[in-house]
Design a binder for these strands. Structure first.
Lengths: 355, 355
DNA sequence: ACGTTACATTTTAACGTCAAACTAATGTAT
DNA sequence: ATACATTAGTTTGACGTTAAAATGTAACGT
């Protein structure tokens, strides 16, 4: 820029004006400026310097605790991102996917957050004690949280997981089921093989969504006289079909009397169905399976999945819009509880032997 | 940062060192620095200022010609993004989704590119004459192009669309089909309703991928003695099931003698199948339908889709890695042609009446 | 006592921009 | 002739950092 200014014998401010407020520079000079810029290879104001000067980047960051690429594996998460993208795009902002787990040490994790040149964060489904959250808080940037964690004074978007879970459990209890198993995703961060989560582990949950869903199941089963202690909760660290299958396999081998499996996500539920088939069980005749999320595939799988519907795209959009509103210093609601509802499809039915 | 330095009576360089090269600052002082920083609300070096000083942002930008949110609608595109994310994450970089179409005027489109604070671009499937491309070129940043356009001296990743298209066409010709229709996505940018694209429009294609696929079909059909002029090419502006259905409906109403429809994407093909069902045609008995891309759904749809497989994730990963390599000033290949192959599934068969 | 090394910190300057306030020159109304 | 706008630019300085080179100082070996 300085070179262009010098070449034309004007101040650099004039160059800046030519790009930012064309009307303040005479047309002839403006044309000369663009021409000279072209010749000298000046591509226009540098965005970084501009951001520094203006103290804003026009970028929103998305924080996600797992490797970024995982986010593209689960339809629910993709839909969420789509929503956020819609909102930021509408506001003329770019979207930065912050690399969530460059290293595994707390410091490395936090550093990605500290280094993100963004105006604010959308935090998506992170554990209460994840260093990412603390780091984001430290940045003192506007921030919106989706799903978890729930923090004071930070706008939140999500559903009432506990009552949604209750609905699913009640549906199965009403059908007459008495022998339940649960396939859960992470209760708290850990890097180990899947396994039964005892009640102590359940109480130490740092992932609120998991905790709420389990609590919902528990409340309904207990109320129906089915002791929660007797319900095996199998925890696995991730939410994929493969994991669901693996865990359901263990669960079914261990306790063949199960007639209903509650899965904490559709991906897991779809895996459970695969495992059931491998065990020679047909769904829902021999085994009922319910999921959570209502991803598009849930409607087309065979059998179609009974699950809890929530509007992931809308959740993302809302999160994005709340962030934008904060950046514009508009007043915002603090908490947006989105509706969720049970969708009964073909994967649940009466337990075998019931009339 | 200046305040922290002043408070402790040291230079700001010492603060900088405490964060960036801890070993250069005595431990006691370093601790004091962090403590004072905490107290004063200093969250560590500002990423924007750092980027300015270091002349790099650690961000890769993805350029996409449609509204960002569309990218999340098509599985093929999501898989591509996943690949790019994997590559950038592996390199410790963040990923910026640049809002591709804030406004519709060339200037507005370009400005998003000019304003993107990134170290390089991955350009994904953009028309030859899109102002985005020109703007990106002007930035003189490292850049990798996926799918289109094909530019000299810019590394490229993609498949050989023409020969892949030939394979599909040959497959159908070999089955004995003689009455073809084509459902195409954009041949050139336009904002109008779907319609037949005559040969003049086909020749004016600014979207190379479209052009190559159509050329592949044409070559095979002509070689089989089926005049291309007689083949209706229906162009629609997007790649969704809904559009595929709409267009196929028009096509089938207009010319009920068609026995085979070539769709330029799986999304379109899936829509075509829906339309066929509505017309009382069964696939593949009455009508054969072939897609392009092999998205996951193609394998599970009913009937499963005959299509061209390509590894979208790998394409994205490669594009990302090529960009990273350029940023590190490593030597790179200029063109990476990925393999693509015909996958015959259940949506194609002999034409009705053939023995 | 003197040079050497090592360490801990400072100095300097530049990264590229733009908000705000200012100037000079010309036109325009009173 | 005076005051007042308007236009087309300029000057100034700060945004927050860090590379590179320079400085000071303590400890060490001979």
């Amino acid at each position: 820029m300085a070179r262009v200014a010098e070449e034309l014998g004007v101040s650099s401010m004039t160059i800046s004006n030519a790009y930012n407020r064309p009307e303040r520079v005479s047309e002839s000079l403006r044309e000369q400026i663009f021409e000279t810029a072209e010749r000298l290879g000046y591509a226009g104001p540098d965005p970084v310097a501009r951001s520094l000067r203006r103290q804003k980047t026009n970028l929103a960051g998305v924080l996600y605790s797992n490797p970024l690429s995982y986010a593209f594996d689960d339809a629910a998460q993709v839909l969420f991102l789509k929503g956020v993208a819609t909102a930021t795009e509408e506001a003329g902002m770019g979207l930065v996917l912050v690399p969530g787990s460059v290293g595994s040490s707390p410091n490395e994790r936090a550093s990605a957050v500290m280094d993100a040149a963004v105006d604010g964060f959308v935090v998506y489904s992170i554990a209460d004690d994840d260093p990412l959250v603390e780091a984001a808080l430290r940045r003192r940037l506007p921030m919106v949280i989706a799903d978890q964690p729930l923090l004071e004074d930070v706008p939140f978007v999500g559903i009432d997981n506990e009552s949604a879970a209750r609905e699913v459990a009640r549906h199965l209890v009403d059908l007459g089921h008495e022998h339940f198993g649960v396939v859960s995703f992470s209760i708290a961060a850990a890097d180990r093989p899947p396994g039964i989560a005892d009640s102590r582990r359940q109480r130490s949950a740092t992932l609120r969504v998991t905790r709420a869903r389990l609590a919902g199941y528990e409340a309904v089963l207990e109320a129906a006289g089915l002791p929660w202690k007797g319900v095996p909760v199998y925890e696995c660290f991730g939410s994929s079909k493969a994991l669901g299958r693996e865990v359901a396999d263990a669960l079914l081998s261990q306790d063949p009397s199960l007639t209903a499996i509650l899965a904490l996500s559709d991906q897991l539920a779809l895996g459970v169905i695969e495992a059931a088939k491998e065990h020679g069980l047909s769904v829902p005749e021999d085994l009922s399976v319910a999921g959570f999320d209502d991803v598009p595939e849930a409607a087309t799988s065979r059998p179609p999945l009974t699950t809890v519907h929530q509007d992931h795209t809308k959740k993302g959009e809302l999160a994005g819009r709340l962030l934008v509103a904060q950046l514009r210093e508009e007043e915002t609601e603090d908490t947006d509880l989105l509706p969720a509802r049970l969708v009964v499809r073909g994967s649940t039915g009466r337990p075998p032997g019931a009339s």
